[in-house]
Simulated scan of single mutants.
Amino acid sequence: MRTGRLLLCLAMGWASVAQAQEAPQEHPIDRALSACIEKDYTTVGMIDCANTAYDSWDAELNKQYRALLAKLSPADAAKLKDAQRKWLAFRDAEFAFIDSIYAKLEGTMWLPTIVMDKSNIIEERTLQLQSLSSKADERS
């Protein structure tokens, strides 16, 4: 019986260590968003927090784009510019789709969610550009 408990405790400990190692570190923008919402979890407060996070992700996206662009050859920079133009078209289409879905829902509780859905799209592209920038560093 003791051996079974010991094995169970060891297995749980290993699972916790493995999970902690796999868990991505929360980005400072996401931490700021969580802290902001904790201070004011009213609908208006959440909208303000979500808008601030959106603006922060948008600024970070532009920063990562410029950083990556500076590392590229002229040919690769042209490819990035083309890809970013196409991504912006995708983003705008995705935002229009999000707006159309939420337009059919009632209640102000959806307002912060709309902003967060849009913010998530910006965040994903930002992290993608950041990852590509790291890979560009490895090439040189």
Score class of each variant (00 low, 15 high):
Arg5Asn: 14
Leu132His: 09
Met46Ser: 03
Pro74Arg: 08
Glu22Phe: 12
Asn62Ser: 06
Arg5Ser: 09
Trp87Asn: 01
Val44Gly: 14
Thr108Gln: 15
Ala93His: 10
Ile114Asn: 01
Arg5Gly: 15
Ala67Ser: 10
Ala11Cys: 12
Ser34Thr: 10
Glu106Cys: 10
Leu88Glu: 10
Asn62Lys: 07
Val115Ser: 00
Ala35Tyr: 07
Thr43Leu: 07
Glu60Trp: 00
Cys36Thr: 02
Asp55Gly: 13
Trp87Ile: 03
Glu60Leu: 04
Val17Arg: 06
Lys81Tyr: 05
Arg66Glu: 09
Ser34Asn: 14
Pro112Asp: 01
Thr52Gly: 08
Arg91Glu: 13
Thr42Gln: 03
Asp40Asn: 12
Ser34Arg: 15
Arg66Leu: 11
Trp57Tyr: 06
Leu6Cys: 09
Leu7Phe: 09
Arg91Met: 05
Val115Gly: 00
Ser100Arg: 01
Glu38Gln: 14
Leu105Tyr: 08
Trp57Leu: 00
Pro74Ser: 07
Gln25Lys: 14
Gln130Trp: 06
Arg66Ile: 04
Asp117Tyr: 05
Lys39Ser: 15
Ser140Tyr: 08
Ile47Met: 15
Cys49Val: 00
Ala23Tyr: 06
Gly4Ile: 08
Lys86Pro: 04
Ser133Glu: 11
Arg5Tyr: 08
Ala70Arg: 11
Val17Thr: 11
Thr126Tyr: 03
Glu123Gly: 02
Asp92Phe: 05
Lys104Asp: 10
Arg5Cys: 09
Thr43Pro: 05
Ser16Cys: 13
Asn62Asp: 10
Thr113Lys: 10
Ser134Val: 11
Leu33Pro: 01
Lys86Phe: 04
Ala53Gln: 00
Leu132Pro: 00
Asp40Gln: 10
Gln21His: 12
Ala67His: 06
Lys39Leu: 08
Ser133Pro: 03
Leu33Asp: 00
Pro24Gln: 02
Arg5Lys: 14
Trp110Val: 05
Cys36Trp: 00
Gln21Asn: 14
Met109Leu: 12
Met109Cys: 07
Tyr41Asn: 15
Met116Ile: 13
Arg91Trp: 04
Gly13Asp: 06
Ala35Asp: 13
Glu22Trp: 12
